[in-house]
Write a protein that binds this DNA or RNA. Sequence first.
RNA 1: UGCCCAGUAGCUCAGCGGUAGAGCAGUUGACUGUUAAUCAAUUGGUCGUAGGUUCGAUCCCUACCUGGGCAGCCA
Length: 467
Amino acid sequence: MLTRTLVKDAHNAPAAADAILLQGWIRTRRDAKTFSFVELNDGSCLKGMQVIVNDSLPDYAELMRRSTTGASVSVRGKLVPSQGAGQKWEVVAEKYAVLGEADASYPLQKKGHSLEFLREIAHLRPRTNLFGAVFRVRSRMAYAIHQFFQERDFLYVHTPIITASDCEGAGEMFGVSTLDPLNLPRDAEGNIDYAQDFFGKKTSLTVSGQLEGETFACALSSIYTFGPTFRAENSHTSRHASEFWMVEPEAAFLDLEGDMQLAEDFVKHLIRDAREHCAADLEFFGKFVDKELSARLDFVLERPFQRCSYTEAIDILQAAGKKWEKNVAWGDNLQSEHERYLSEEHFKCPVTVYNYPRSLKPFYMKVNAPDAAGRETVRAMDLLVPGIGEIIGGSQREENLEVLRENMRHHNLNEQDYSWYVDLRRYGSVPHAGFGLGFERMLMFVTGVANIRDVIPFARTPGNAAF
RNA sequence: UGCCCAGUAGCUCAGCGGUAGAGCAGUUGACUGUUAAUCAAUUGGUCGUAGGUUCGAUCCCUACCUGGGCAGCCA
């Protein structure tokens, strides 16, 4: 029995072969006088394999009638040097079968489609060059994430998807409930009585595994999570999705400085890995998606990321001599236009902004000593990247029990709701830090694809959960 | 959630007060070691939905729906 060869491997064959078996989908067919060219793609690589089907094969006319774009075929034949210029090898079919036809209603054509249209046929778009390439890179990057952390002795921890904790500051949550919405139980005050719900309390889909991740870092030293995350924000932008994947390393005995370095090494590792293992796909993106891609990725690899404190960033923005939509003053959030200016115009490279005003950040971030002007900051950091903006957000966590409690009061949080989290500071507390990287945003950066909906297999955005 | 843009053939778009057009795809034929093949012919549309203005609306107005962009929220 002849085993199947992937198109990718056939292209890399060291020598001609008397018999190989290819199976895949037809991208296009071109008929010549006594034979047809059938271009077969199986998703293993960008480039299809050119198959020559001679009219001497039995049922040639009928086979070609059924060999339309989108049909699936099984081809057994000889791998021979191509007579044409476009490829090294081609396959001369000896046995040729159409497994599944694709009639005229098949929506994918040889010529380009708009990304908006392809989103409507998300079940078929991986059959296009662009999405095949995107999802090959996505798969490789997921692998590279594990490789990076495993090599550094970070343990992979599976934090819960359904959670009763609210990683405050991360965003709105999707509720998880089995209560009948038409007949909700009420407590004495008329509020929904979650005590009668499935878990006996109010639960939601996770917005971050960070708090749970910290508990494992405070036992196993260095951990990471990598999984889906859910935010019920009504965001309509090209870089927000309601369901996305996040990588969240957390390490004990790590400070903000080390956290920033880890983030930089991590991002560079992913880019280097994509360069090495997805070269053909990246070349495709460089040609059809973003002409600057290759130069930008090289540039990012070559230089250290810039670092600048929030306070310095404010000074830079105020000295920029630009008219801002929103004025910049110490204590304000950096707006999109400010972040863009820093990474795209001022530093012209990825930049890590750190030590943000305490008032802007969640309760768990470690508080710095006040500066000369008495201003309070926390050890937070955001990695800003040209073209996308924030790709990583992280911080050193507050390990001091009393300061953490004070922070919780400051944020109007009930300590009882976070008792297990507070315990980490009560028993053997250690300095620790971590960050979250938006996997899709990283993919946008690596591929040059401008919309987050196009780097997720099936995008969930407000009002849209087809498929 | 706010502001903005767009919905016309299967796809990408043009038309814009007088009743609908192109390219591609499809179909038919020709030609050819082609590779987004080429050439010729041809099929295909209650112009997003509902109201309104008008003698007359795809075109102007309003609302809604859908898609997209930007901002906020963040990753």
